[in-house]
Simulated scan of single mutants.
Amino acid sequence: MSFLDHLEELRWHIIRSVVAVVLVAVVAFLCKDFIFSIIFAPKNGDFFIYRMFCEIGHWFKFESAFCTQELPFTIQSRTMAGQFSAHIWTSIWAGVIIAFPYILYQLWSFIAPGLYENERKLARGFILIASLLFFLGVLFGYYLITPLSVNFLGSYSVSPEVKNQIDIDSYISVVRSSVLSCGIVFELPIIIYFLTKLGVVTPVFMRKYRKHAVVVVLIIAAVITPPDVTSQIIVAIPIMILYEISIFISAYVLKKNKNKVT
């Protein structure tokens, strides 16, 4: 195929992906009450994650900031089209998240013709595992990172004179960034797999800089969670588990490549 033919092929893959996102977004738009009841759940003081952290606090014999019936902030819309705009964009992002496996399939369909036959056989496994990791990351972001961020930022106050009245776009932005960033972070094993295939990363390199990775993960956990050690450790543990899994994946790929050479 010529360069222009490749562009034409890519254009159709992009069009199919966009159509899938739009179709899901339309469904999400019609399910407004269901979608927004889920999105607004972390702003309620009785959200089950808060109750869980409250019980953990009681178990360790200290007073937890999560033991509250109502968070000290309200969500508001300060522009005429604010709520409608939030409805539209939330539906679109819901379409992107839910249609992610199909988008991944379209991306692979474009790349696959340029691969060897044995590499193409990995397509099904790649799409399934990558999609599973992404959705696990989305759930982790929504059920852990989002509540921790909302609780801390919504409760934070520099002065009793300043009341927290959060704009709806700001609130949804926190939820969206938490969910999508975790979805991407959970793709780490897949990324390491391909970087090892390309010879960019090795298990020796990852083991050598494991301590540095721990420090980075703890810093990230400290930034996105309230300032208590329990929350930071709970967030850091799954990310470090992913890192360790990535080391095993890198070692497996390297071993497999050496066996092919011999």
Rank of each mutant, 00 (worst) to 15 (best):
F40I: 14
R11K: 12
I14C: 02
R16P: 00
V21T: 09
A20P: 03
H13E: 04
F40A: 12
F34N: 06
S37Y: 08
I35Y: 11
K32G: 00
F29H: 01
H6Y: 13
L7I: 14
F34L: 13
F40T: 14
F34D: 10
E8Y: 08
L10D: 05
V22M: 12
F29A: 01
F36I: 10
V27H: 02
L4Q: 10
V24D: 03
L23M: 12
K32S: 01
I38Y: 11
D5L: 15
A41M: 11
L30Y: 13
R16V: 15
A41L: 14
P42A: 00
H13A: 09
I39N: 00
V26L: 12
L7F: 12
V21R: 04
I15S: 03
R11F: 12
I14F: 08
E8G: 07
L10N: 04
A28E: 08
I38F: 15
A20F: 04
D33W: 07
L23C: 14
A20R: 04
F29T: 02
A20S: 10
H6A: 06
S37D: 14
A41K: 01
I39P: 04
V18N: 01
S17M: 07
V27T: 09
L10F: 14
H13M: 10
D33C: 01
L23D: 03
L23V: 15
R11C: 05
L4C: 06
L4R: 06
D33S: 10
V18F: 08
I39H: 01
D5C: 12
L30K: 13
I38W: 13
D33V: 08
F3W: 15
S17R: 00
C31S: 09
A25E: 02
V24W: 02
V27S: 06
F3A: 10
V19L: 08
R16K: 13
V21Y: 04
F3Y: 15
V18A: 15
A28R: 06
I14D: 02
